[in-house]
């Protein structure tokens, strides 16, 4: 038997032939995401080049990788943390990862997020848990004008729709990464 995964935004985004403007939202179809729970620091993971570790709260991180498959990420993290009293949970299906970038990205996100996203305050490489469109999200700055937003899957439809609505002013476009 083979089961085909279905992304929650499949129906909303559709397939190919969507325009790409300067301000664009990319939905990553199959990112690998895992929750890392640990009592102490997780320096053991700093060597994992393909993994971005994003703080969620005390002793909790969201590990994100766009190259490793979902289950492999959780396994390699668990292996790297073995014996350190840490725990890893695969959450690749639990979150939807959106990459939003463009010259007006901060002006768009100012309508979704209460946190100050100015580069002096929230620098490239930083990530934090924050509300995005009334939903608990993890937001990371991945470039001067680029952010990644991870939201729980069940809310993703709602958050996506709201971000796109807030982007109308700047003709924000959206598509899957493999479109």
């Amino acid at each position: 038997m083979s089961f085909m995964p279905r992304h929650i935004l499949e129906e909303r985004i559709g397939d190919f032939g969507r325009p790409v403007h300067a301000d664009h939202l990319t939905v990553l179809r199959r990112p690998a995401i895992a929750s890392v729970l640990a009592g102490g620091p997780v320096e053991a993971l700093s060597g994992m080049a393909e993994v971005s570790l994003r703080p969620v709260g005390p002793g909790q991180w969201l590990a994100v990788s766009q190259s490793l498959p979902g289950s492999l990420l959780a396994e390699s993290l668990a292996a790297a943390l073995a014996g350190l009293g840490a725990h890893v949970v695969d959450q690749s299906d639990g979150f939807v990862l959106m990459h939003i970038a463009g010259p007006n990205v901060r002006r768009i996100l100012a309508k979704c997020i209460a946190v100050d996203l100015h580069g002096d305050v929230f620098a490239i490489g930083q990530a934090a848990a924050m509300m995005c469109c009334h939903v608990a999200a993890n937001v990371a700055r991945v470039g001067a004008d680029a952010f990644e937003i991870a939201v729980p899957r069940s809310y993703a439809d709602d958050v996506f729709e709201e971000i796109v609505e807030m982007g109308r002013e700047f003709s924000l476009t959206s598509a899957f990464d493999d479109a």
Partner: peptide, 12 residues
């Protein structure tokens, strides 16, 4: 107590 938890409501 040594205990940690995480919601997986959306994962499954």
């Amino acid at each position: 107590l040594d205990v940690r938890f995480v919601s997986v409501s959306d994962q499954w």
